[in-house]
Computed example of a mutant assay.
Amino acid sequence: MSAISERRERERAHRHQLIISAARELAEAEGWEAVTTRRLAERVEYSQPVLYSHFDGKDAIVSAVALDGFSQLAAYLSHARQAAPEPEHALRAVSRAYLEFATDRPALYQAMFILPTDLKFASAETPVPLRASFDEFVNCFRPDSERRELFAEVIWAALHGIAVLSQSGRIPADGQEERVDFLITQIASAR
């Protein structure tokens, strides 16, 4: 590859990331309804055709934001798990970190789990960052446990429910610690 081709590729990658960042910032400030290709083109100072050379439309942009979010989530959960001294503490730490992530980044969380994307969960096509996020839950359980993926799925699903119900105001946020304690206790007794 020539130096010119390498520079063009770096510039394209930079534009791609700039569009993703602008979409996330706009969604965090005004909600996902405000994220349009026209507004993004204005914000990144590129034409709409340039935007479409990177993404097929808003759904593709949301998918890219979500994938970026899963990379961040995996790192966040990994840090929480590795900071915990014992397996039960690790599960509690990862669970709390998950809920903190969802609370602190509502627009990103919405892109990752609520809005339509082309990301495949639990399949051979699952992107590495998504699998890495899930594996942080799996790694909280004993390696010799045949049901560790099942436990991880149940924990993740329950935490997702808690996050969504809390964000929508359907359950009070102040009971979150008690919910996590109950969930961990129930899963720990089933292992």
Rank of each mutant, 00 (worst) to 15 (best):
1 M>Q: 11
1 M>I: 06
2 S>G: 15
7 R>T: 14
7 R>P: 00
7 R>S: 10
9 E>L: 07
9 E>C: 04
10 R>E: 14
10 R>H: 07
11 E>R: 12
15 R>L: 14
17 Q>S: 15
18 L>F: 00
18 L>Y: 01
21 S>K: 11
22 A>D: 02
23 A>C: 06
24 R>W: 07
27 A>E: 06
28 E>M: 03
29 A>C: 03
29 A>T: 13
33 E>V: 13
34 A>Q: 08
35 V>L: 05
35 V>F: 07
36 T>C: 07
39 R>F: 01
40 L>Q: 01
40 L>P: 03
41 A>L: 07
41 A>S: 13
42 E>A: 15
42 E>F: 06
43 R>E: 11
43 R>N: 07
44 V>A: 08
44 V>S: 07
45 E>L: 12
45 E>A: 15
48 Q>D: 09
49 P>V: 09
51 L>V: 11
53 S>R: 12
56 D>M: 04
58 K>A: 11
58 K>E: 05
58 K>I: 13
60 A>W: 04
60 A>P: 02
61 I>A: 05
61 I>G: 08
65 V>P: 05
65 V>K: 08
66 A>E: 00
68 D>V: 02
68 D>A: 10
73 L>N: 05
75 A>M: 02
77 L>E: 06
78 S>Q: 14
79 H>Y: 03
80 A>K: 03
80 A>H: 04
81 R>C: 04
82 Q>M: 11
83 A>F: 03
83 A>I: 01
85 P>D: 12
88 E>Q: 14
89 H>D: 14
89 H>P: 01
89 H>V: 10
92 R>T: 15
92 R>Q: 12
93 A>W: 00
94 V>E: 04
95 S>L: 05
98 Y>V: 10
101 F>G: 01
102 A>Q: 04
102 A>N: 06
104 D>T: 10
106 P>W: 03
107 A>H: 00
113 F>K: 07
114 I>R: 01
116 P>M: 05
118 D>V: 11
119 L>E: 00
119 L>R: 01
120 K>H: 07
120 K>I: 09
120 K>C: 06
121 F>V: 11
121 F>W: 14
123 S>T: 09
124 A>Q: 02
125 E>Q: 08
125 E>N: 09
129 P>M: 04
129 P>G: 08
130 L>H: 02
133 S>M: 05
136 E>H: 07
137 F>E: 01
138 V>C: 13
143 P>M: 08
144 D>T: 14
144 D>L: 05
144 D>F: 02
147 R>E: 14
148 R>A: 13
148 R>S: 10
149 E>R: 12
151 F>A: 15
151 F>E: 13
153 E>F: 06
153 E>M: 10
153 E>D: 09
154 V>A: 12
154 V>P: 00
154 V>W: 00
155 I>L: 13
157 A>C: 09
158 A>P: 00
158 A>Q: 12
159 L>V: 06
159 L>H: 08
161 G>V: 01
162 I>W: 00
162 I>E: 09
162 I>M: 09
163 A>I: 06
163 A>Y: 00
165 L>A: 15
165 L>G: 08
169 G>V: 05
170 R>S: 14
172 P>F: 03
183 L>F: 10
186 Q>A: 13
187 I>Q: 06
188 A>D: 11
190 A>I: 10
190 A>V: 09
191 R>E: 15
191 R>W: 07
191 R>V: 13
